[in-house]
């Protein structure tokens, strides 16, 4: 099962490193990362395989959100299906 993790906010040092560290700690494999910086707004989209995640998805979401609050960006993790449903026929 795949999740999409998005990070949106002001660009600062270490956003990707800190997010990846949380994923790595819970055995979540990153499949793809794209990022763009428009002015000082940072937007990163990460596809990750959560099938072998060592904690319930809810806990992973909470931890990522807490990290977002700590470093001043919005981080959300959701199942990939919502994007497939909305953007593919």
């Amino acid at each position: 099962m795949r999740a999409v993790i998005t990070v949106i906010g002001h660009d600062t040092v270490g956003i990707i490193a800190k997010t990846s560290a949380v994923l790595s700690r819970h055995n979540v494999n990153i499949l793809d990362i794209t990022q763009s910086v428009l002015g000082d707004i940072f937007a990163m989209v990460m596809f990750a395989d959560i099938s072998a995640c060592s904690v319930p998805f809810r806990d992973l979401q909470n931890e990522l959100e807490a990290l977002g609050t700590e470093i001043g960006v919005q981080i959300s993790a959701v199942h990939e299906e919502i994007f497939n449903a909305m953007h593919t026929v």
């Binding site: 999409v4 998005t6 949106i8 794209t34 763009s36 937007a43 989209v45 959300s76 990939e80 919502i82 994007f83 497939n84 909305m86 953007h87 593919t88």
Partner: peptide, 10 residues
């Protein structure tokens, strides 16, 4: 899915 679509949904 491309990044633009994902950001649009969000």
């Amino acid at each position: 899915i491309n990044t633009g679509d994902i950001l649009e949904t969000i």
